Simulated assay, not measured.
Amino acid sequence: MDKNTLFSSFGKWIAPINIVNFQQRIDETDQDKYVKKLTTKAYLLLFLHAQLQQREGLRAIADDVLSKEFQQELGLSSISPSQLSRKNNQVEPALLEEIFVDLVQQIQSVSGNTHSLRKDIKIIDSTTIGLCLQKYKWATFRKTKAGIKIHLRLVFANQEDVYPDKISLTYAKSNDRTQMESLIDEIGAMYVFDR
């Protein structure tokens, strides 16, 4: 994606996110009560942009803010990696979970109207995310490493589209079998997962 296309399409890419509801939840929870610079909405947009551009660290994400077009979108003139790190620790995960659930419901309402041969096939898989043991002692994984595990259930909406349906976060040591009860909850569906 070239530079000119990126910012014109970024607004369309995030359009399914109900920013008004998100902002109401931020206001209700006082998430941005003492925030002067990096609001939770700007944080969300910045990290979605980073995901789209496959940025590999906070420094690369902070460098994106140097673009004039992106500064207008975010309402920021600059940001440091340390500010991003602090905001990452402050954002309430429940706010981000609500966005995920809302997007899944939107996909289900659209895909529910189309006939699908594969709608009863669901894939369950997990991935481990390594964390710094010094900062995340609660997430002990190995002697020198911390981590969490994301267990994900994917649904075939139709022959071209696959979307995440359900997610579960655990310590990295947790076996996939520990989450089967929460991820397998429909009778008549075929679940595919590795050992």
Rank of each mutant, 00 (worst) to 15 (best):
Pro164Tyr: 08
Lys145Gly: 06
Tyr171Asp: 11
Val104Cys: 09
Asn158Tyr: 02
Ala146Phe: 02
Arg25Ile: 05
Ile150Pro: 00
Leu6Trp: 13
Ser67Ile: 04
Phe10Glu: 11
Tyr163Gln: 03
Val91Pro: 03
Lys135Thr: 10
Thr128Lys: 06
Lys145His: 05
Arg142Cys: 01
Lys173Cys: 07
Arg118Phe: 06
Ser77Leu: 13
Asp32Ser: 05
Leu76Pro: 06
Ile99Ser: 06
Thr144Trp: 05
Arg55Thr: 10
Gln159Thr: 12
Arg59Gly: 00
Asp194Ile: 05
Ser67Thr: 07
Ile148Cys: 03
Asp63Glu: 14
Tyr43Pro: 02
Ser111Pro: 04
Phe70Cys: 09
Arg25Tyr: 07
Gln179Arg: 05
Thr29Ser: 10
Leu45Cys: 02
Glu186Thr: 10
Ala15Leu: 13
Tyr191Cys: 01
Lys149Ser: 13
Arg195Ile: 14
Lys68Arg: 14
Arg195Pro: 02
Gln31Phe: 01
Gln179Asp: 06
Leu117His: 04
Ala94Arg: 14
Asn158Pro: 02
Thr5Val: 15
Thr127His: 06
Ser182Met: 10
Leu58Tyr: 09
His49Asn: 04
Gln72Gly: 06
Arg25Trp: 08
Ile167Leu: 12
Gln54Thr: 13
Arg195Trp: 08
Ser109Glu: 07
Ile26Cys: 11
Arg86Ser: 15
Phe7Leu: 15
Asp176Leu: 10
Met180Val: 05
Glu28Met: 13
Tyr163Lys: 08
Val110Ser: 09
Asp30Gln: 13
Ser67Met: 08
Thr144Glu: 02
Arg59Leu: 03
Leu133Arg: 04
Leu46Phe: 00
Trp138Pro: 05
Ser77Tyr: 06
Arg55Ile: 00
Arg59Trp: 05
Gln83His: 14
Ser8Asp: 14
Ser78Val: 12
Leu48Gly: 03
Ser8His: 14
Gln134Tyr: 09
Gln71Ser: 03
Arg177Cys: 05
Tyr163Asn: 10
Ile123Asp: 00
Thr140Lys: 12
Lys166Leu: 10
Ser77His: 12
Ile148Met: 04
Phe22Pro: 11
Ile184Arg: 02
Tyr43Asp: 00
Leu133Gln: 14
Ile121His: 04
Ile184His: 09
Glu97Asn: 13
Arg118Gly: 01
Ala157Gln: 01
Ser111Asn: 02
Lys173Gln: 12
Ser77Asp: 14
Gln108Gly: 00
Gly75Arg: 13
Asn88Gly: 15
Ile14Leu: 11
Val162Trp: 10
